[in-house]
């Protein structure tokens, strides 16, 4: 399992209810179910990935995260997770508010755009950075948002959503391994992971 998902999994309490937005083939949900006995639900837009997740015996809805998240009642889940998807979200504020409505806690992970390698690439080559974390050219990238860890923190202040936990990580060339970054994370971390509490909490 991806290292950011391992970190997220370590934050979830046993028996919790979890909604994973953009769950792909459900590896996080499957892991949480086996290790922590959580009751998980996933939403995935790709038919093949959603099908694979359901075939694993997970509860997954094939559909669009914006539409599907709206159907859940307030506080339906302990945790709502959005992992490595925020950079592709059209209206992040609306989505995160929805996540905080249906979940007690919301966990978001995203590639840190201002990682040192990206900065060097831009600075020395004058070109849009292409990295392992953001492996696309400007003309074919599905990633419509560039998110530095520092900016995400400011965004949370604007939302009035408290940051309950945060960790910055740097992953190895195998994305299943990594370490946490405490020194200058906005420069040295490849990913930021945040747990938010409800608005005004």
């Amino acid at each position: 399992m991806r290292f950011d998902l391992q970190v997220i999994a370590s934050w979830i309490e046993p028996e919790a209810t979890v909604l994973d937005l953009g769950c792909r083939t459900g590896s996080l949900l499957d892991h949480l179910r086996q290790e922590k006995g959580t009751k998980g639900t996933g939403i995935e837009i790709d038919q093949e990935a959603a099908g694979e997740a359901i075939a694993k015996g997970l509860s997954v809805i094939h559909g669009d995260i914006y539409e599907e998240v709206e159907d859940y009642p307030d506080n339906a889940f302990d945790y709502v997770i959005l992992s490595q998807t925020l950079q592709q979200v059209y209206d992040p504020e609306k989505l995160i508010r929805e996540m905080l409505r249906v979940g007690h806690r919301c966990i978001v992970s995203f590639p840190n755009f201002t990682h040192m390698k990206n900065r060097f690439q831009m600075f020395f080559t004058g070109r849009a950075p292409v990295s392992k974390e953001l492996p696309y050219e400007w003309f074919n990238t599905p990633n419509i948002r560039v998110i530095p860890i520092t900016d995400f923190r400011r965004f949370c202040v604007g939302l009035d959503a408290p940051i309950v936990k945060e960790v910055a990580i740097s992953t190895h060339h195998h994305d299943t391994k990594g370490r946490t970054i405490t020194f200058l994370p906005n420069l040295f971390a490849t990913f930021g992971i945040f747990m938010l509490g409800q608005v005004g909490e």
Binding site: G51, V60, H62, G63, D71, P73
Partner: peptide, 19 residues
């Protein structure tokens, strides 16, 4: 999708796939 919505709003355990 309409039935899935009805199920979700009741907190039922539902999986859905459009093949």
């Amino acid at each position: 999708k309409a039935m899935v919505k009805g199920m979700k709003k009741n907190g039922l355990d539902v999986s859905f796939c459009e093949i």
